[in-house]
Amino acid sequence: MLDLTPQSIRLVERYEDGTDIDHFTFEPVDKSKGLPEFADPAKVEPGQFFMLSIPGYGEAAFTYAGMPDDQGRFIALIRRIGSLTEALFQMKAGDTLGARGPFGKGWPDLNGNKVLVIAGGCGLAPVAAKIDALIAAGSDPVVYFSARNEAMLVMREERSRWHKQCKVYEAVDDIDSAKGSYMHGRKLPDNLKQIEAEQGKFDHIITCGPEGMMEAVCRIVTEAGHPADHLWLSLERRMHCGVGLCGHCYVANHLVCEDGPTYRWDQLGELVVKERAIKPPAEQVDMAVNAGSCCRG
């Protein structure tokens, strides 16, 4: 039987990590019977999510931006966007919330492969734990991360660590006002071409960001010859349960909470045919416009 009742967690720490974006660390309140599954490093996989309850405000899905450690501490990168997240942004270290999980299908095991990770905006969160896992497995991933502007380059601490561990490309759309040196975010096709010229072909590509961006990425790389069955992305749908009961997260006959949120591009394509869940890719690849229209961007 499923358990739809959360367990208490404590907010351990939070700090600003982008405009209206905070980096949260949580831990279970009661560890006396061992770590609950949602905080157990042996039970959670990169790409999975948990349901976070803020009593009085409801429950919403958040991705693990870092695997739980052996103390059961886990990380989420959260954007202030509505009433639930607003309430969360009023909370301080020591406050009690609820969590359950882990839910959904994580990213596939790509250890030993040459992997390119392409993330846009808050879409870095669902791939962050995978980047860590690939680094730990010695698979040397290449990361391309793009954001609207410099202030939206989220996960500072993780990125400064990755810079020492693997190749990281960074891009911003608003290049003129940026202080650092970056690739031009709006020139996605050119950037991907340059990365391939420098790094060679990739076995697998993982992407996460606003849907418009992911579609653009998938179209560009498949047109350039990357096989669709070696291309992965993560979808976002409204979720009220996370376990295949409430019906909200449907795409055709799939429930994204259970059958996703990670999908292989060609398999998602089959679903899209059943129900145009993703609109045909926009002609113009404008990261700024697309990023503004989705939770994770």
């Binding site: 409204r238 409430c246 019906g247």
Partner: peptide, 25 residues
């Protein structure tokens, strides 16, 4: 106390899939 309730919903309602960002498939 705070009580979590569940109530019937319908896929025919315009907000059924509306995400917090405003995106609505």
């Amino acid at each position: 106390n705070m009580v979590r309730q569940r109530v019937w919903d319908s896929c025919l309602m315009v907000g059924f899939q509306k995400e917090a960002s405003g995106a609505n498939p």
